[in-house]
Design a protein around this nucleic acid. Structure first.
Lengths: 121, 121
DNA sequence: TCAACATTTCTTGAAATATTGAAATATAGC
DNA sequence: GCTATATTTCAATATTTCAAGAAATGTTGA
């Protein structure tokens, strides 16, 4: 079984990246954008559609999308007059890796029993 | 193989919890506290030791520890005159679950190829 | 180039969060 | 009870982040 966080080819986020990404995800609108884009998958979604679905103003949404893009969590491409946003799955994966690796890997001798028995290996 | 994010007994964090926890982790000192406590494992570490190791003032550290505890990411217990802090591994696990589940589970028909081929299953 | 549409940038003010240092609280040992 | 140690709380200040709307920019298709 190949899992999201155990793929050795998938680098864990650095502390700086992790900080930037956690910060980006710690805002309600931005977290919802990410969840919306995850559901939209590789097709992505135009900025205007996202704004409509979340009931946010265009300018506010643009700000949040820039924020997410700067954090490397979403990617944009132009299609006609629309700009299509989509989530960067490897970035989410690396962030998970950052948490999980610290939780369960490399510190096996120290890890608590709850984690060891319920969640690891 | 039993993995951190695929254990059905391990509930995914709610959006509110996720927001609170992402927010807690998006601050340099707090992220370092969590990493330090992960390394300390179940034994945990006294507040004073954490402050010394991170070069932070006692009062500042106390504030950040309260913040992390309120977010459910760390737990405290008294031992003599020290208060020992330790990380709540299931909380980290649930947060990872929150990201990973949204990334790869429940939306298989939409998930992008990069995620599907590199990270899922 | 022009008109229409989509997105971004900028400004302002409000709200949340961080830092510092001093004072307060709690425990252990004498 | 008294003192030393460990940690937390509090008040004042500084910093960061957020929201809203107007104006500016960029793109398409005629």
């Amino acid at each position: 079984m190949k899992t999201l966080h155990s793929d050795p080819a998938l680098p864990r986020a650095t502390e700086t990246e992790a900080l930037l990404r956690f910060s980006a995800l710690s805002q309600e609108t931005r977290l919802r954008i990410v969840r919306l884009l995850v559901m939209a998958g590789q097709n992505g979604m135009p900025a205007g559609t996202i704004a409509t679905q979340l009931g946010s103003s265009d300018s506010r949404l643009s700000f949040h999308l820039s924020h997410l893009e700067h954090a490397g969590l979403v990617h944009s491409r132009r299609e006609g007059r629309s700009i299509i946003y989509s989530v960067v799955f490897p970035a989410l994966a690396a962030l998970s890796e950052f948490l999980i690796q610290d939780c369960c890997r490399g510190f096996e001798e120290n890890v608590n029993e709850g984690c060891k028995s319920e969640s690891c290996d």
